[in-house]
């Protein structure tokens, strides 16, 4: 009996330093943020009240939610397609594709955002191409607006979606689809009835990952949005660094955190979250 206890406490000892580190550098600052949000400029929930009264804040939340949702849907769909391709081509092609995906992952977000500006702007390469092949007479407004922002964000997030989905797809034995085909299912029926349901965990991981990440985005929206697409994170930064309204900034940051936790809670009702995060 004592032997067993010893092992348990030994594990705890091993984990303790990491827990301590997390508490100091993660939990404690979080508590600080929460504290500031209810004490500045004066103690109380005044900052939170603004969430309900300020039309501007509503607009920002709505913009953020809209763009993040749109980005998430597009990214997961595109990511699924790419992951599907990767799971079905030969080893060498798969490696090449993986390399390309990881390569963009390692590029700085700033470089990517500016690259998109160059491609999407009024006299940029895409508009030149569209006009050259006659699809449009006047250049399209592709950047400095929500369209540009979504494009930039989807592009950034794709590896985040592709990787978990691909990991899932790889584990799906081809015998399932063969069995379905043999039982009379067309390729489409086999995909919808068997393959897609089996890839659900990957899709859910990707969705959560992309959504939570995109909530915190502000560089890409700032550069590609022409200043007109203001998202929560941007506003938090302004409140924190420029106008020094720390009460507001922390309130928004806390609300964002709660929003994410809420999303996780809702998802958790439909899906075994532990499985999604890797437990077997």
């Amino acid at each position: 009996m004592t032997r067993v206890l010893d092992q348990q406490s030994r594990y705890w000892l091993l984990v303790m330093p990491a827990l301590l580190l997390m508490t100091v550098f993660y939990v404690y600052p979080l508590i600080q943020v929460l504290w500031i949000s209810v004490t500045e400029p004066e103690p109380g929930l005044g900052n939170y009240a603004e969430l309900f009264t300020s039309g501007f804040l509503h607009k920002i939340w709505w913009t953020t939610t809209r763009i993040c949702t749109l980005t998430t849907i597009l990214t997961v769909v595109l990511g699924y397609i790419v992951a599907f391709a990767m799971a079905h081509v030969r080893e060498r092609q798969m490696t090449a594709m993986m390399f390309c995906i990881l390569l963009t992952f390692w590029l700085s977000v700033l470089i990517r955002a500016f690259a998109w500006v160059m491609l999407l702007r009024t006299n940029g390469m895409i508009n030149d191409l569209l006009m050259a092949i006659g699809l449009t007479d006047e250049p399209l407004r592709l950047s400095r607006n929500e369209f540009g922002v979504v494009v930039g964000m989807v592009h950034f997030m794709l590896p985040l979606a592709i990787l978990p989905i691909y990991a899932n797809l790889r584990g799906i034995s081809p015998s399932y689809v063969s069995a379905a085909r043999g039982l009379g299912a067309s390729a489409r029926q086999a995909f919808l009835g068997v393959y897609l349901p089996l890839s659900k965990p990957g899709i859910i991981s990707a969705t959560m990952l992309v959504f939570v990440f995109s909530l915190g985005f502000f560089i890409t929206p700032a550069i590609l949005g022409g200043g007109k697409v203001v998202m929560i994170s941007e506003y938090i930064r302004v409140a924190f660094e420029e106008t020094l309204l720390w009460g507001k900034a922390t309130m928004l940051a806390t609300s964002l955190l709660f929003a994410v936790l809420l999303v996780l809670a809702v998802v958790g009702r439909f899906v075994d979250l532990r499985k999604v995060f890797g437990a077997t």
Partner: peptide
């Protein structure tokens, strides 16, 4: 003729029962 149109019953090694 593609496999889904042949109307044959198949039992594979590993059974391939749909796990979900």
């Amino acid at each position: 003729v593609p496999p889904d149109k042949r109307n044959f019953g198949m039992v594979f090694q590993g059974y391939a029962l749909f796990p979900h």
